[in-house]
Nucleic acid binder design. Structure first.
Lengths: 195, 195
DNA sequence: ACGTTATATGAACATTTGTTCAGATAAAAG
DNA sequence: CTTTTATCTGAACAAATGTTCATATAACGT
């Protein structure tokens, strides 16, 4: 056999991406073989190389797409007036965006060490941009006297770590709705930077 | 050749543990081979099997030892009076303990999915015990009217996520001393659960 | 209908993987 | 010194790894 009926790169491509995403998130990049990904798609391993130069590029692509999506979504979101409202907006945005992409988030946090140095640097730069968005808000709030944090850089990382932690326990259909979760976290974030 | 001069299980055993710890933390469990571990120790791969039944047991042992050490250290630490002081004590303890064992912490968080179901359950139970320690403090504080948190379980996870995040950026000899870091985080934790 | 291009197969490759084991040597015990 | 026990080597195993490529067929453009 050779080319199969109905085969098309517009279909196979995304399916390969999706399979890699799922399997990397489930078992980890290093533990997943190209043959497993191919099997998930219903194709032979060799066919994957029509869509990626190598395995490592698949990982990088997933992570980069995720980070770019994150930054784009943030920039496109409506930013309210005033540091306090902006912080609230960031809190809601972060929880919601991350909750919608648990697999991408998991990979973006866990597989950094499997990136080549150049790829790693690129992802880290994007992450830095995102952190800057929050730090800018915190700095403005401190200057306006609405926040008190001993160190805006650390507060930024602390808040992000706290919010991202939602993904480790939240399950849809659980005890709490996403709205409730957002309210709870917003209460804690708001107070943690209060004067 | 066969048995080597000066060889002794009391020496080789710990060295294997240390090598596995270092390499698992650096490259991830799945990405590290038994031969790499053996090479780090200066021994052939076959010799490892005098100390572990298989690779997976090495991982489990590392994780279990870490979790038991954590719980033991917590139980042995002097607990002050009153929820607020206990929360402060927990904050300091958590940051310090985790800062002293970055490799163990990293592995304990990242390699859960590589455990067999039974092993996973055992580690998760230990983690649950530790989380309970904090939740107990929070509950007491809420009852005494000293804390306000919408949900003690979530607050527990949020605080732990925030504190463990220290490990992702703190480097000895950096801009801030460990004392300063503790003070900064304590400020945020205290306020986040304030009434 | 036909030529071109896109997309897959399936076999092959050199390496590497976790693990086993018989045999050899060192250390400890008698 | 001799025997027993502990510890390691080195070779071996089948299976799995990432990747390449000649080849075949489907889809598309004309």
């Amino acid at each position: 056999m050779a080319r199969t009926q109905g085969s098309h790169s517009d279909i196979t491509g995304p399916r390969i991406q999706a399979a890699a995403l799922k399997l990397f998130a489930q078992h980890g990049y290093a533990a997943v073989s190209m043959r497993q990904i191919a099997k998930e798609v219903g194709v032979q391993a060799g066919a994957l190389y029509n869509y990626t130069p190598d395995k490592q590029s698949m990982l990088f692509r997933l992570m980069k797409t995720h980070m770019v999506d994150l930054l784009t979504a943030w920039e496109e979101s409506e930013s309210p007036e005033g540091p306090l409202e902006q912080l609230r907006h960031f809190t809601r945005f972060h929880i919601r965006f991350h909750r919608e992409r648990p697999e991408e988030v998991f990979i973006a946090y866990m597989e950094l060490r499997n990136l080549s140095p150049e790829n790693f640097a690129e992802i880290e730069a994007l992450r830095g941009q995102y952190e800057n968005a929050l730090e800018t808000i915190l700095k403005a709030g401190v200057e306006a006297g609405q926040f008190h944090v001993p160190d805006t850089k650390i507060a930024t990382l602390a808040v992000i770590a706290m919010l991202t932690g939602v993904n480790t326990w939240y399950r849809a259909g659980g005890r709490l709705s996403l709205d409730e979760v957002e309210a709870i976290y917003w209460d804690m974030v708001r107070k943690s930077v209060a004067p």
